[in-house]
Amino acid sequence: MTRWLPCSAATLATFLFAGAALADRVAVLPARGGTDDAARQTAQAEITRGLTALGHEVVADTEVTASLWAVLDGVPDSTDEYRTVGTATSAGWVLLGLIEPAVKTTRVELLAFHGSTGRVESVAREVEQEQMGPQIQEMLSVLVRPEGIGEGELPWERAVTPPAPSPAPPTAPPAVPPAAPGPSTPTSPPPGEASAAGGSDKLATMHYLSAVRRVWPPYSGGKPFGLSALIGFSHATTRPEGAIGSASAALVSLRASYAFAGTFEPFVQFGSNLSGPGAVWVEGGARYLFTPGLHMGPKGLEGMALHFGLEATAGAFIRPGQSDLEGPSDVRYERSLQAGFTMSAAGTVIVGISPGLQLEAQVGNLRFVPLSEGSLVFVGATAGVGLRY
């Protein structure tokens, strides 16, 4: 009896230590896929319960939601973005569920990022809706572990061989007329195919001035091409010594753009002064935009269609030739055409009226033009309207 107690205590301590070693902190991202919010919420709850049953610590939803602000578009979908969420929540694992419900089953794909190794793995199966809890827990048990999924068949993939039926006496079966083909039951595509077809698992509810729409990306709304017309003013804060005439000008510009990934938008631009010193500029540039109001709501990503950003340009600045100019002491002179380099930078504000129509403004409009007789430095602002398609 004396020897049994130490042995039992050692065995119990080993078991408890092993359980503690296997427990990890897991950040569960909001489930995606399909259009059934109830199905996603049910699967999300079963994922949380399964992790807890396996001894893992699940990060609170409020912490996960706060960590999404560190992700550029608010929807982690790459190794670096999973790592960002893991770091922000101090979680060793980041888990994502992709849900596609059908009539009696639900296709569940679980994707797991392991922070210490940088490994991303996933498992998928058709889950019976009445057995969702135990079957999701079985998936988690082979996915959320240091060694990963490993090789070989997964537990639910092992085929069960039914017992061979006893041979029936040879009898001539009655003729049975062929059954009429019934209507085929449509099946939901896997999440990857749904995403490729239209990104249904990655939409944001954007509040425009005229309507509320579910779109992606939040800025371009699935309309990457843009055409804008802008009008504004500029004022020369620095001019060559002896410059005459007004330092201020009214201007107009036209630009064509294309938004990549919904946040980076290169463009080409043509501009001209409407009044004041004559000038024309042709340049290329780009702007980087973000949507500060985008957040995770009860039904997924949502926010106001209000975007901020920074833009920069570079190109050619042309001053047309002019005759009969009045100089100092009433001297008349001519100026030949001048062409030089220009670059500019500005802050950008964009308000969406609808996915295809937006108001935009550029503030600051700091422009630098080096010339042979000296440099020009302008500040100003522009505003206008843009179309997207």
Rank of each mutant, 00 (worst) to 15 (best):
W4E: 09
A9L: 10
A10R: 06
T11L: 06
T14G: 08
G19K: 12
A21G: 12
A23K: 06
V26K: 05
G34K: 06
D37E: 12
A53D: 14
D61T: 13
T65E: 13
A66Q: 05
S67W: 13
A70P: 04
D77S: 14
V94F: 04
L95K: 01
I99Y: 15
E100T: 15
P101V: 04
V103P: 00
T105C: 06
V108K: 03
L110W: 01
G115Y: 01
G118W: 15
E126V: 03
P134W: 02
V144G: 07
P146G: 12
I149Q: 04
P155M: 12
W156S: 06
A180T: 15
S188E: 14
P190A: 13
S195F: 07
G199N: 15
L203F: 09
A204I: 03
W216R: 08
P217F: 10
G222D: 14
F225P: 00
A229D: 02
L230A: 05
E241I: 05
E241V: 06
G245P: 05
A247W: 01
A247V: 03
L251V: 14
V252S: 08
G262V: 03
G271N: 05
S272W: 03
V282T: 13
E283I: 01
T313V: 02
G321M: 11
Q322S: 14
G327D: 11
P328F: 13
G340F: 07
G347I: 06
L359N: 08
F368Y: 12
P370R: 12
S372G: 09
F378P: 01
A383Y: 07
V385M: 08
Y389E: 01
